[in-house]
Design a protein around this nucleic acid. Sequence first.
DNA 1: GCTTACTCTACTAAATCTATAGGTTTATTA
DNA 2: TAATAAACCTATAGATTTAGTAGAGTAAGC
Lengths: 137, 137
Amino acid sequence: MLSRKTKYGLKALTFLARQETYDPVQISVVSKSENISHKFLETILLILRKAGYLGSKKGKGGGYYLMKDPSEIPIAAVYRILEGPIAMVPCVSLNFYEKCDDCPDEQTCSVHKLMIRVRDNTLQIFENTTLADLIEK
Amino acid sequence: MLSRKTKYGLKALTFLARQETYDPVQISVVSKSENISHKFLETILLILRKAGYLGSKKGKGGGYYLMKDPSEIPIAAVYRILEGPIAMVPCVSLNFYEKCDDCPDEQTCSVHKLMIRVRDNTLQIFENTTLADLIEK
DNA sequence: GCTTACTCTACTAAATCTATAGGTTTATTA
DNA sequence: TAATAAACCTATAGATTTAGTAGAGTAAGC
């Protein structure tokens, strides 16, 4: 299941990518347009800013804006920041690898092999899709 | 993330599928071999039995056994029983469809389109992989 | 009728998710 | 320079889910 955090984050990013200019857009404008709680969106945008995808400006006329071209923001990156590992089990994660405590041998684990296939497939989509692809009709 | 319930369920099923005969295997045998809490596995196997994939026998010499040939048990079915929808958002789920409360129009939703692609890919793997495929080395 | 092993209901502890509250900081503008 | 606007930050609360436990009940076999 995709968390609301990630879903809202993606929606907010596409909203910003759809703007004609990259002038700052207020949180409240995004939150109203996309039906997202203002306060919740605040924390999400903050995370994306700290990750370097958004810039912000304080005070009147302030808001958030994209720091990169949408074509340079792969979904995989956004997903990892907001949701965490793309893999369904930590033992097949490339960026967040962890050994399963119950599994003595990954090589012979049936779930492991299956989940590698799922990861490769999902990864292929997430790495090769960028924000720019999402804003096309 | 794959829940432990599903992971344990898949491991238990492959364990049963690897047996030479389909004589009943005690929960405790499976739980020890696969490092799964006995009581937790109990509830998982019960679910799989009620779904028709396992049979059980009570009393001495009792246990669980497969009701179908491993090649007739697609991973997708097991996943849906134990984990729920394969889709990452309910609005792209085939079997558990639900409208998103925040989204006014699915046709123009960028997340929706993306998640349909992910679902199709994952589904393709889960539908075309059976228990029989998992037990091969 | 005793033992074995599955069945079933209910419960709990911990973690995670989805926010919300409320004050702080910074920038603009009148 | 005072007022205002808007992001920044920390903490926390409520709901839900997960993972596992407890313990009594039921059926099968010897």
